[in-house]
Design a protein around this nucleic acid. Structure first.
Lengths: 175, 175
DNA sequence: ATCCTATGAATGAATG
DNA sequence: CATTCATTCATAGGAT
């Protein structure tokens, strides 16, 4: 749902009188172009941009509207965290396929919109770019994502079971 | 193209029984039983369930109807936030004139308004279950949490704005 | 149909 | 990196 539906920068309803040009915002309101580029970068494999990368991204994205480095930083943080969170919360519930489940089915097929699959093949393109262009003497930490080994601890629960009778006291029983 | 478009959800009006076929809506519509249980949990002191708790709650509540883990997650988030929000408004108003202002008290009709003002003490019963991670007996985290403009002291290296030209291919060009 | 309220959902911004 | 808070968007349902 990231870019598919919530790309609206222009608050349509504008119930409370919202600005759409980013003049008053105490909070960054990314434009669709900004989100688009960020999403592309993310899907290209970039997960934790370094400081310089953040700088450059921010500079480029400033063309589309007001943006700061921290916005880029937070965006990647959040996007990564929520992708992971979503997989924990949602990806797990899909235990049964949707074949003939007439009723009372808690199965839902989530259409993962974009690949959050863990295969982290860093895009080649990312490795192409000349790392140093700001005159920063440093070894660009090409964080091609070597992380993501955190095991899922959320899988051991059997969700398929159904109860025969309503849990009368389930606020305590199952927790 | 959201991932949340999962089959069907049913109006909560139909008490008891599972939903079978409902209208296609992309939004979870909790049944009265689900809300009831969630509210009980909340009033029992549970505010921010952990991921596994969310899983269990979701599993149990699936008896009453379609539900996902994220629904439980959002429910608690929203419920807590709105309780606090409401309380904050009231509190501010009280400091001005506590003289018996016949404000509209129609606000909450069925939603409980428990006073969880001070402590967030988790019921002991919650600690019974084996794999808990709640170790709070007394004196929980008094999350005072001043909600004011938190000055941002990080990321002071804002880059201003230097828009040169539309980065048509900024995926690679600028990095 | 229109407005309003309650609330599910999303996400920016922090914090630990 | 995860967890949480605050704010906002979107929408269902009731009231008018």
């Amino acid at each position: 749902m990231e870019e598919g539906m919530s790309g609206f920068c222009v608050r349509g309803g504008s119930i409370g009188g919202n600005n759409s040009t980013g003049t008053k915002c105490g909070r960054w309101n990314p434009t669709t172009e900004q989100v688009k580029v960020l999403t592309e970068l993310f899907s290209s494999g970039l997960r934790t941009p370094s400081t310089d990368q953040i700088q450059k991204i921010s500079n480029q994205l400033s063309f589309y509207g007001k943006i700061e480095s921290k916005n880029v930083f937070y965006w990647f943080q959040n996007h990564k965290a929520r992708e992971r969170q979503k997989r924990r919360k949602v990806g797990k519930d899909v235990i049964r396929r949707e074949n003939s489940i007439p009723k009372n089915s808690f199965t839902q097929n989530y259409t993962q919109l974009y690949d959050v699959s863990e295969p982290e093949r860093v895009i080649e393109t990312l490795q192409l770019f000349p790392l140093n262009s700001l005159g920063e003497s440093e070894s660009k930490n090409m964080r091609v994502h070597a992380s993501e080994c955190r095991e899922n601890t959320m899988f051991s629960y059997t969700v398929g079971e159904q109860m025969d009778q309503p849990p009368l006291d389930l606020r305590l029983s199952f927790m």
